[in-house]
Write a protein that binds this DNA or RNA. Structure first.
Lengths: 120, 120
DNA sequence: CTGTATCCGTCGCGATACTG
DNA sequence: CAGTATCGCGACGGATACAG
C-alpha cells in the first residue's frame, strides 16, 4: 500500500507552504460547513431552504457565508429566478464536480469507518 | 461526469446528520492542521521537530493537540525512544494510509488548481 | 529535544431581529 | 422565500515560559 505526496511538495520538501494559495483553497473546501454544503449539492440542485435543511445544524449566517465563498471559488453556481415568492437555486459547477469526484471516495470511507474509529 | 453521494445519505436524505460520528471524524481529519500533519507524514516517519518544520506555521500547542487527536483516532502512531536527548517518531498507521490513499487525489487536485481557483 | 502549562486576544459563529 | 444586519460570547489558537 504505497502512498506518496511527493508530487505536491515544493523544492524545500514542504507540503503546503504557508501563505500558499493551496492553503486558502484547502480551508475553503475542507471547512466544517464547506464539505457538507458541497456534499449536499452533489446529487443535484437545491434551493436555499432545502440546503438549509439538508445541512443539519447550519445557521443562516454560515450558510450564506459558505455559499458566497464557494461561489467565489467557482465551485457552485447561484441562479436566482425573478418570481414571487423568490426562488434561488444552487448547483455544482463543472469545477465543483471535479472536486467532488475526488472528495467523495474520502467521505465515503469516513462514513463507513467513523464508528470504528471513534470506538475507544 | 456523474457523481453521487447517495451511498452515505441516511433515510431522511441527509448527508451527515448532526451529532453523527462522521461529523467528528470529518472535523478531526479535515481540520486546518490535521490535513497538513497527515500530509507531512505521508511519505515517511518524522520526528517532532521535523514535523514542526514540515508543517510551516503550526504552533507547538496545535501540533501537540493535532497529534494527540489523530493518534487517538488511530491514524498515526507515536513511538518514543528512551535516549538522551529524547527522540520521538510519528508515522501513519495502516488506517492512516487507507485514509491518505483517498485524501491524496484530492490534495493533488487542489494543489494543481489552486492558482486558477483564486485568480479573480 | 520533546513536549506541557498558562495567559489572553480575536474572531468564528450562533441567536435574533429585520428587510426585499 | 431568501437572505442581510447586528450583537455578543466562547473557544480556538498564538506566544511565551517552563519542565523532563
Amino acid at each position: 500500500m504505497q502512498v506518496s505526496l511527493a508530487s505536491i511538495r515544493d523544492a524545500r520538501g514542504e507540503v503546503f507552504t504557508e501563505g500558499c494559495p493551496t492553503r486558502t483553497v484547502l480551508d475553503h473546501v475542507l471547512s466544517k460547513w464547506g464539505v457538507l454544503v458541497l456534499g449536499a449539492l452533489t446529487d443535484g440542485t437545491l434551493r436555499w431552504g432545502e440546503l438549509r435543511r439538508a445541512v443539519e445544524g447550519i445557521s443562516e449566517k454560515m450558510l450564506a457565508s459558505t455559499l458566497r465563498t464557494l461561489e467565489g471559488d467557482g465551485f457552485i453556481r447561484r441562479e436566482s429566478f425573478p418570481e414571487v415568492p423568490p426562488r434561488v437555486e444552487y448547483a455544482l459547477t463543472d469545477r465543483g464536480r471535479e472536486l467532488m469526484e475526488r472528495m467523495l471516495p474520502l467521505m465515503d470511507w469516513i462514513a463507513a469507518n467513523a464508528d470504528e474509529i471513534l470506538a475507544r
